[in-house]
């Protein structure tokens, strides 16, 4: 579904992502892990067209989307969340979902209705998403007034609003307690059961090991291992680069 071919991004002399190739299959929950600064978030940003690649290619469903503008990437069916929560604080919870939802769903309708439609349009799907995120009673609140956990959930709901086929989750468990992490794991599995493919970039090991089908490990921008969670756990290169220090 998603293929990265020798993807590289150099910032000056720093090889943030270096010759990275991987394939995420349809319906998979794919984990991308690695120590701080190993290039995980950069990879997500390259896929989404936030900044240009140095070399290599991003192919999504057989379509080359390397360096495509972000709004095209979204239209192609890729959604994402951010490592640091990024919401439109001055818009309501509902409005945060509204724009993304319509940008894809109503592409068939004319631009006039798509732009100038009122608040009522497509309320059902956004309502469903709000329920999924546990925010149904907060719809008309300004996003900035939400509690931290609510903001994270809203971010995920917003990523879903454009009905992506592939969801990129950039450290969704950051700052969550154990209970919230287990709720998150439930949500991620539910999404996969709805036919979504997920690329999970994460630090929290219980989450990654618990929900993913396959994992790739990055270190200094390069892939040092790939395999099922059990294989990754016992891989000696990974242990020294990453897990070893975490276990100690």
């Amino acid at each position: 579904m998603l293929e990265l071919h020798s993807l590289s991004k150099h910032f000056g002399g720093v090889r943030a992502v270096d010759d990275l190739s991987l394939t995420v299959g349809q319906g998979e929950i794919f984990g991308l892990i690695g120590p701080n600064g190993s290039g995980k978030s950069t990879t997500v940003n390259l896929i989404c067209g936030v900044f240009p690649t140095t070399s290599g290619a991003v192919v999504f469903e057989g379509q080359d989307i390397t360096d495509a503008p972000s709004h095209r990437v979204v239209a192609a069916g890729i959604g994402r969340t951010f490592q640091n929560i990024r919401l439109f604080g001055d818009l309501t919870v509902w409005q945060n979902l509204w724009v993304a939802q319509n940008s894809v769903e109503e592409r068939q309708t004319g631009w006039l209705t798509r732009w100038l439609g009122g608040q009522r349009r497509g309320r059902d799907y956004a309502g469903e998403l709000l329920k999924f995120a546990g925010l149904a009673d907060r719809a008309n609140e300004l996003a900035r007034n939400l509690a931290f956990g609510e903001q994270r959930r809203l971010e995920m709901a917003r990523a879903l609003a454009a009905r992506p086929k592939l969801l990129l989750l950039d450290e969704p468990a950051a700052g969550m307690n154990a209970e919230e992490v287990s709720q998150l794991a439930t949500r991620i599995r539910a999404l996969r059961d709805h036919g979504m493919t997920i690329l999970l970039v994460e630090h929290v090991m219980e989450l990654v090991m618990g929900v993913t089908d396959r994992i790739a490990v990055l270190n200094f921008g390069q892939k040092i291992a790939e395999g099922a969670p059990a294989e990754i756990r016992s891989d000696p290169a990974v242990r020294t680069a990453y897990l070893g220090t975490a276990d100690a």
């Binding site: 972000s70 709004h71 979204v74 439109f88 604080g89 001055d90 454009a162």
Partner: peptide
């Protein structure tokens, strides 16, 4: 308003 608040994020909502 999205474009004004965070253009990069707006782009990721499918906004041109």
């Amino acid at each position: 308003r999205m474009v004004g608040e965070d253009p990069v994020l707006a782009r990721l909502q499918g906004v041109n």
